[in-house]
């Protein structure tokens, strides 16, 4: 059987590339870490891959605004490749900084052509915070979150993760389309404010997908919870697979079946 091919994109300041690659390789994908310069120089072709993963980090220092400069690089230097990549039904996942890049490049929620409709801005607490959060799954559309329990537990670690949309109409549209994938909740699935909602996100939104369900972005880090030992209470719980692993499995499974 052919292995799904994953491009984990990196550039100056990317820093979750290795563990993201590890998560994909754990579910039997063929993973490559690719510097964006190679794609721009055409030494590597985006279309050779089934999945584009934009990992966490602080690309270009998050100077100006988190993810902005890499988002522009995608918009201005790889636009045509990305369009074709998406047209062919391939998959994209953006985690943390990767989510910020997808939103700021307009790839998410993805209504208009590379036009930004939402943003991820500085946390209400005005500081970077690392904490574990409960996420409630709201989407039937997103192919990345199939077969997940209703509530999962993942860490967030960011300073600019407050999700906001352009206007009310956008929020209604996202809701109606089933594009809101994860909301921050408590352990029972009730939507609550800080610290459950760690950054003050509008409508507690933690992750969204595009209309096809194939492009997915989220602030929490599924790659940091693929193994039971990463759970903060593993000593008490013992031997359960990490909640995040299924997300990577889903991507690979989809690529295997349809790409």
């Amino acid at each position: 059987m052919r292995k799904a091919r994953v491009c984990v994109l990196r550039t100056a300041g990317t820093n979750c590339d290795q563990e993201t690659a590890f998560a994909f390789s754990k579910v039997d994908a063929q993973v490559e870490l690719v510097h964006i310069n190679r794609l721009i120089e055409r030494k590597k072709a985006l279309l050779d891959y089934d999945i584009l993963a934009i990992p966490g980090g602080f690309t270009y220092g998050d100077d100006v605004a988190a993810g902005k400069i890499l988002a522009n690089e995608l918009r201005f230097k790889l636009k045509e490749d990305l369009k074709r990549f998406i047209q062919r039904g391939k998959l994209i996942i953006g985690i943390c900084n990767g989510f910020q890049v997808l939103v700021k490049s307009g790839l998410l929620p993805g209504q208009d052509d590379f036009k930004q409709e939402a943003s991820l801005i500085i946390n209400d607490s005005a500081r970077f915070e690392d904490r574990w959060v409960y996420l409630k799954n709201f989407s039937n559309k997103c192919i990345w979150t199939r077969n997940l329990p209703e509530i999962i537990y993942l860490p967030v670690a960011h300073g600019e993760g407050k999700f906001v949309v352009k206007d009310k109409a956008t929020l209604i549209r996202l809701n109606k389309n089933g594009q809101i994938v994860f909301r921050y909740s408590d352990e029972k699935g009730k939507l609550k404010s800080y610290p459950y909602n760690p950054n003050g996100s509008q409508d507690n939104i933690a992750g969204i997908c595009d209309e096809t369900g194939r492009i997915f972005g989220l602030m929490p880090h599924p790659e940091r919870h693929i193994d039971f030992l990463q759970h903060p209470h593993w000593i008490k719980r013992k031997n359960k697979e990490g909640d995040g692993l299924q997300i990577f499995k889903n991507g690979i499974e989809y690529a295997r079946l349809y790409l």
Binding site: C16, G56, R127, D130, R131, A157, R224, I226, L229, Q230
Partner: peptide
């Protein structure tokens, strides 16, 4: 103090 540091990046944290 501790929360402001990313203590989980690289994925290797076993006892936080």
């Amino acid at each position: 103090v501790i929360r402001q540091y990313d203590h989980e990046v690289q994925g290797g944290s076993v006892l936080k």
